[in-house]
Deep mutational scan, measured.
Amino acid sequence: MDVFMKGLSKAKEGVVAAAEKTKQGVAEAAGKTKEGVLYVGSKTKEGVVHGVATVAEKTKEQVTNVGGAVVTGVTAVAQKTVEGAGSIAAATGFVKKDQLGKNEEGAPQEGILEDMPVDPDNEAYEMPSEEGYQDYEPEA
């Protein structure tokens, strides 16, 4: 019985440690998101679009440190934060509304985080759909 109880105690310690790591990862992701939003706020009209992409990228980098179902929630929060940063930029006159959601080359930025393969159960990952990809044929 002692062996059984000791095993359960060790398992509990492992769960607590994993929860603490997840909590730490979420806190880091939130900190990076805040950094990115402050970065966007300090940019001029020309830099705002690039700044919004930076927020998304920093958040995406930190999301990889967070495991399990938390990833889905962090990704949703990050996307809403990026959308909010863009709205703030438009409201303050840093950028025109028609410039939001495009990178410096004018290509749409939507789907940055949505296409990231995420499995809350950590069982399997699927690649994003290939609808947006084109076949590449090298020139002879």
Rank of each mutant, 00 (worst) to 15 (best):
D2M: 00
D2R: 05
V3I: 04
V3Y: 03
M5F: 04
M5V: 09
K6I: 08
K6A: 06
G7Q: 11
G7L: 06
L8K: 00
K12W: 14
E13V: 09
E13D: 01
G14C: 15
V15Y: 14
V15M: 14
V16T: 07
A19S: 01
A19P: 00
Q24D: 06
V26G: 01
A27P: 00
E28P: 01
E28C: 03
A29Q: 03
A29Y: 07
A29G: 04
A29M: 04
G31T: 11
K32R: 06
K32F: 13
T33M: 15
K34D: 00
K34W: 02
E35L: 15
L38C: 10
Y39L: 03
Y39Q: 08
V40M: 12
G41R: 09
S42R: 09
K45M: 15
E46A: 08
G47A: 15
V48Y: 03
V48G: 02
V48P: 09
V49D: 01
H50G: 09
G51T: 11
A53W: 04
T54N: 08
A56R: 13
E57I: 02
E57M: 08
K60W: 07
E61A: 07
E61Y: 08
V63I: 09
T64L: 13
N65G: 06
N65M: 05
V66A: 07
G67L: 09
G67Y: 10
G67F: 08
A69G: 06
A69P: 04
A69E: 06
V71R: 10
T72H: 00
T75I: 15
A76D: 07
A76E: 10
A76R: 05
V77T: 05
Q79L: 15
Q79G: 09
K80G: 08
T81N: 01
V82S: 08
V82Y: 05
A85C: 07
A89Q: 03
A89I: 14
A89N: 04
A91M: 12
G93F: 10
F94Y: 14
K97S: 09
K97Q: 03
D98T: 06
K102P: 08
E104S: 04
G106T: 13
A107Y: 15
A107E: 09
P108T: 10
P108A: 11
Q109G: 02
E110G: 03
L113W: 03
E114K: 07
E114S: 10
D115V: 13
M116H: 09
P117M: 09
P117Y: 04
P117A: 05
P117H: 04
V118K: 12
V118N: 08
D119V: 13
P120K: 07
D121W: 03
D121R: 12
D121P: 10
D121H: 12
N122H: 09
A124G: 10
Y125C: 06
Y125H: 11
E126L: 07
P128Y: 12
P128A: 10
S129C: 05
S129K: 04
E130K: 06
E131N: 12
E131L: 05
Y133D: 11
Y133G: 09
Q134I: 14
Q134P: 08
Q134C: 08
D135E: 09
E137P: 09
E137A: 15
E139N: 08
E139W: 10
